[in-house]
Amino acid sequence: MSDEPLIEDEDAEVLEARLDQGGVRLDKALADIFPTLSRARLQTLLAEGVVTRDGEPVSSGSAKAQPGLYAVALPPVVSATPLPEAIPLTVLFEDADLIVVDKPAGMAAHPAPGSETGTLVNALLAHCGDSLSGIGGVARPGIVHRLDKDTSGVMVAAKSDRAHAGLSALFATHDIERTYLALTRGAPSPVKGRIETLLGRSSSDRKKMAVLRSGGRNAITDYVVQQVYGMPAKAGAAPLAARVACTLHTGRTHQIRVHLASKGAPILGDPVYGSGSPAAPVRAAIAAAGLTRQALHAAVLGFVHPVTGEPLRFETAPPADMQALEKGLAEL
């Protein structure tokens, strides 16, 4: 067996050390021979498959260590400062103080674990250059609000610090017009109403938000069922799907997705809050449309320009995947 580890990433920094005695947990043994790496960091590296013994991958930190030559391939360090990327943007409005874009689904608003590049911030840095507001911090220049990565629609970003401060104040006082279009499994009842709850982290899954009985933050969504699809023959039964317009009065994380799910009408394609499976015809329509994300689009954004005082309002149609899905639902 060769002493050369089988490392595929040519840009990785490779640490090597020989373990003469085994018997203890592997993560502990590795922490002893690689003192610059913590056991927690080593456990992550093991899970990522970048640790080898005598050229063979090892992955279980709880397994008993065996003597041999161990190698750890450390991934390249990612810059904490986002870099400009020449990503095409659909610009709806731009002046010296702000820019309004129609964000595509699949683009994160700013760099975060798992989305370090290809974000709106990367695109804006290339498009706006040095004119992007720095109040949002190094990782989030210009960002005053965000859409989920897989939610499409209208977003505004600040190019000047005075616009950033003014937009932030408008969002803080909810003096912003924001309407979203959602395609849902079933339909919320009644056909028009207000959902007002407390929203916070789920006690069972900290990655999810949930409606809470106490704690959390107040969240208000007005909704209107604009169209229903697949009306059942049985009187009083719910439709198979619907198009719902939601107006935000607060801007909590995943607010619309959680609120519609709490009404028994989760957004179609939502991998987190879409509990339960849609009816077979709806599943077929989703597949035919090629929808691979939650069917949610930020259709309207209106506000008073924080510098000029000009009323601004922008409206965009849902992208092709949602339009194709709605066409398929209309044929149910």
Results as ranks from 00 to 15, higher is better:
K149C: 11
D97M: 05
V144Y: 12
L301D: 02
K103C: 09
T221H: 03
A86S: 11
G61W: 06
I135T: 04
G61R: 07
A65E: 03
L92H: 08
L325F: 06
K28N: 14
H297M: 02
P75G: 07
P239R: 03
P76T: 08
S133C: 03
A172R: 13
S262L: 08
V14A: 11
A108G: 10
R140D: 06
L260P: 01
S2K: 14
V144W: 07
V91G: 10
G274C: 10
Q43S: 13
V300W: 04
L291Q: 11
P113T: 09
A126W: 15
I135R: 09
R257I: 02
E177L: 13
R213Q: 14
E56P: 00
K28H: 14
S202Y: 03
H254P: 02
K327L: 13
V154P: 08
I286F: 02
L312E: 04
G129A: 00
P271A: 10
G236P: 03
V225H: 08
S168L: 10
P319N: 12
H127A: 06
K103L: 01
H174W: 11
T292D: 15
V78I: 14
L74Y: 06
G61P: 04
P57C: 05
T221W: 08
L248Y: 01
G68N: 11
I33M: 01
V304H: 11
Q21A: 15
A105L: 02
L240A: 15
Y273R: 12
T90Q: 14
R185A: 12
G153H: 09
T151R: 02
E85R: 03
E8G: 00
A210V: 07
V50T: 13
L120H: 06
I99H: 10
L329T: 03
R243W: 06
S277N: 12
R293L: 02
A65N: 02
L74W: 08
K28E: 15
R252H: 10
G55D: 01
T179N: 04
T117N: 14
A237M: 11
K64D: 12
G276K: 12
D130M: 04
K263H: 14
E310H: 04
L312D: 00
P188S: 09
D11W: 08
S38F: 09
D270E: 07
I7L: 14
G137C: 11
P271N: 05
I176S: 05
E85Q: 15
A29P: 07
P75V: 04
K327V: 13
L301P: 05
G23T: 11
A210W: 10
S160I: 05
K103G: 06
R217Q: 15
